[in-house]
Write a protein that binds this DNA or RNA. Structure first.
Lengths: 353, 353
DNA sequence: GGGATCTTTTGAAACGTTCCAACCCTGGAT
DNA sequence: ATCCAGGGTTGGAACGTTTCAAAAGATCCC
């Protein structure tokens, strides 16, 4: 590939001048500029960004570490981040950690070696560790997305998990359910804990005490949703509603429901945190807490770039975005076996107090 | 961040020696090596890959251009590519083209400037253009994934679209359908044309002549699936089966089916190219031609890296992967209104000749 | 015509590596 | 004692930019 030197030679100017017309740093006379531009075209010159990066000490690349790009929630985040990055002239270097801290460490190191200007992180680590603090100490800004790492104080953009879960469970309660099971996320994850807290809050405010055997300890994976869902559904006292704390667990849950021939929503109400992109095409249309995934990425990237470019300094900021409850058929049409004489309408009145 | 010079100073050796222990290029005495390793740890030294890239003229980065990461088919491809890349020490620089050639041009240029070692491309361009040929001419290997660009001769990994569509339509025919509508993909796209050809082949071999008004011209987007699906469903002579040529169009199609209250599979059989990851959790479980998306990415990346590293030279190779037909409920249980006296069994016998 | 003042242009150092020729030892052979 | 082989070490050029001080030209005014 052609170098700036070749361009300069062909245009009959010095390297410095060529550089100036390429980067617009300093004024260059029309005639010379035209010659340089011409040479660039003729040589199909592409400035060597590597050499430039070395000199100016910035790469215009951002690292992006997340559990798994295959999960639509994360791919939406990436898309948002990429859009913001692009607008501001950055490219994204992405890697999947599969929730493994070891992988995260390797990638953070690789990204630092590549001298990315900053890192967007959906953390696998659940506590502040050297690979994270070290990067920040060395001057590589990090912005956490979706999850916070306790003790690791950096900018973050999160959704209000408590509120999302709370509103959803509140809605379930309002639909007439009393025994509501929850398939929770991993205890180590801050957002999973928040979601569970939201569920508890909703139940508490409705005066329903949550028996602990209705809280199933999941891990945000499909298999857990399936296994725990099945466990719940075969109980002698089957709950009338189940809330899954993330999207992929709800997929497993749905399979369990199907397999056991339980009808949703007639026999069981289902709801989930995370809205799946195809919810409106398939049945049951799941009631879901939709997270603004694209915004998480978009705002996160902008936050990061502001930091990178020194447009913002000082204390970390935490942006909390609001999730949106999407009420769909999976929590509609449940008809609790009402005590004789009571009607659905009566039921509703009952709920209103 | 610390530099190799600082490491060398602290270890009391020359830069050359430090470099040798870091990269293992030449033998270094135990004692000195230990000192260097120690200094590296103490300084939290991360080799500057940028400087290294400049010198050795390779970045160990691969570019990846695709329409939209948000489409699960593509995110699976990325995941496969990333896995292969990682195994061989490369990182992926990803960007979304939104099927716009203009964006593709900009990105190819950006990637060349960044001196990626090669590019993985799900092309937006539908004919060979300078931004592609120019890159290859300049020594940046490109491997096409999923789609081929006519006239642009490079390595590629594709799925056998003809066969996939053919098998699926064949299956639909075997299930007793005679009026089968097809929602086709954009004419410019090579794979869309292949899929349509596969459909035609299946119909032809069954002796069914395809009336052209059963071929709807779509564009691989959800809205088209919805609009064209609706158009088909309100016809006085409604087809008994519809095949959508890609996954996202089938999402729109499903919405149309829902909206018009048509029952699948009882009143309409549905099938699609592209298997959606959630097909087994939601209804209707769609019969689908599953593409080995992960493999496309994995094999594509390996092909590319082989080229990059000079492990392979010479004529382009084209790898064709086999799709897999997943038969599910959406094409089962259709009971055509049989002429009096004929049974479903009779129907079947009829089909067998 | 000669400064003075701008505007343009140039040359060279620097960014952090790799890599190679040259050098320095040490020890064994002669 | 001298020479040689070979391992270990070093210095410095090179990679392709940017950037800045200095040089070179223009322009203008007296």
């Amino acid at each position: 590939m052609a170098t700036i030197k070749e361009v300069a030679e062909r245009a009959g100017v010095s390297i410095g001048t060529a550089s100036n017309v390429i980067s617009g740093t300093a004024r260059v006379s029309k005639a010379r500029a035209a010659k340089v531009l011409n040479a660039i075209k003729e040589l199909d010159y592409h400035p060597n960004e590597i050499a430039r990066s070395l000199k100016v000490r910035q790469t215009k690349m951002l690292g992006m570490l997340l559990p798994d790009i295959t999960n639509p929630f994360f791919s939406d985040i990436i898309r948002g981040a990429e859009d913001a990055a692009l607008e501001r002239g950055y490219l994204l270097l992405t890697a999947n950690t599969d929730e493994q801290v070891e992988r995260e460490k390797r990638f953070v190191s690789a990204l630092r070696s590549r001298r990315v200007d900053g890192i967007l992180l959906v953390a696998a680590a659940s506590k502040s560790e050297a690979h994270l603090t070290g990067a920040v100490a060395a001057g590589v800004p990090i912005v956490c997305l979706d999850r916070i790492v306790p003790g690791f104080e950096v900018d973050a953009v999160l959704v209000d998990n408590v509120r999302g879960a709370q509103e959803c469970v509140r809605h379930i309660i309002r639909s007439g359910h009393k025994t509501i099971a929850i398939i929770a996320g991993p205890r180590e994850l801050h957002n999973a804990r928040e979601r569970l807290a939201g569920c508890r809050a909703a139940l508490k405010e409705a005066g329903i005490k949550l028996s602990e055997d209705l809280v199933m300890q999941g891990d945000f994976r499909e298999e857990a949703g399936y296994r725990l869902g099945k466990e719940l559904l075969v109980r002698r006292e089957r709950p009338s509603a189940i809330f899954a704390c993330n999207g992929v667990m709800s997929l497993g849950l749905l399979m369990a429901v199907d397999e056991l021939g339980v009808k949703c929503p007639e026999e069981i109400a289902l709801a989930t945190f995370d809205d799946l992109p195809f919810a409106h095409s398939f049945h049951p249309h799941l009631t879901a807490v939709a997270q603004p995934a694209n915004s998480i990425g978009y705002q996160g990237a902008n936050l990061l770039i502001d930091r990178v470019e020194g447009k913002r300094t000082g204390d970390p900021v935490i942006v909390r975005l609001s999730p949106e409850l999407k009420i769909r058929e999976s929590t509609r049409g449940y008809r609790p076996a009402t005590p004789a004489g009571e009607t659905a309408a009566g039921m509703k009145r009952e709920m209103a107090k």
